[in-house]
Design a protein around this nucleic acid. Structure first.
Length: 152
DNA sequence: GCCAACGTTGGC
DNA sequence: GCCAACGTTGGC
């Protein structure tokens, strides 16, 4: 079992949206970055746990936890010409982009802000701190435990 | 809305 | 395969 951090813009899709979804489960799609895609396709597994991170908003940081309930499959949006995630170079035989399904687990009592993460000596090695722009990234068990503790 | 950091594209 | 130009992410 591995730990991850997924970023989302709450104006587009928030943790609350996931909590409100049927069975509190939804497709995590629209990932269009190769490094993030490779993690999704090759590493993210059913049962893995995910820190849900809100970017581009007032209170930037980790807001809660989700769980992976289905491992990678072809992101249907890449085949949909109506979608902003359409990719004409993707084919059914060789899809280019992947998505997973996640289920809501919990919402933190308080947001673990990016500021507090950056201020914490034990969290300096987080991908979030070192490489700002990756939307799917691995988290260590130590980082996970500390952030979960800070959010409670 | 600005802008730094980083990713992608495309000419050569 | 290099690298300049351009596009996107994301904090502030």
């Amino acid at each position: 079992m591995q730990y991850w951090l997924f970023k989302t813009e709450p104006d587009e899709y928030s943790l609350q949206d996931l909590a409100n979804a049927p069975q509190q489960t939804d497709m995590w799609d629209g990932i269009r970055n190769y490094q993030a895609r490779n993690f999704l396709r090759d590493k993210v597994a059913e049962g893995d746990r995910v820190l849900m991170y809100h970017s581009q908003c007032k209170n930037v940081g980790v807001v809660g936890i989700a769980e992976v309930v289905r491992a990678a499959y072809a992101d249907p949006a890449q085949f949909n010409q109506e979608s902003k995630y359409y990719d004409g170079k993707a084919t059914l035989e060789s899809p280019r982009w992947f998505c997973v399904d996640i289920r809501f687990v919990s919402q933190f009592n308080q947001v673990v802000s990016l500021k507090s993460i950056k201020a914490h000596p034990e969290l300096q090695q987080m991908v979030l701190v070192k490489q700002g722009r990756l939307s799917v990234q691995p988290v260590t068990a130590q980082e996970w435990q500390l952030i979960e503790h800070l959010g409670r």
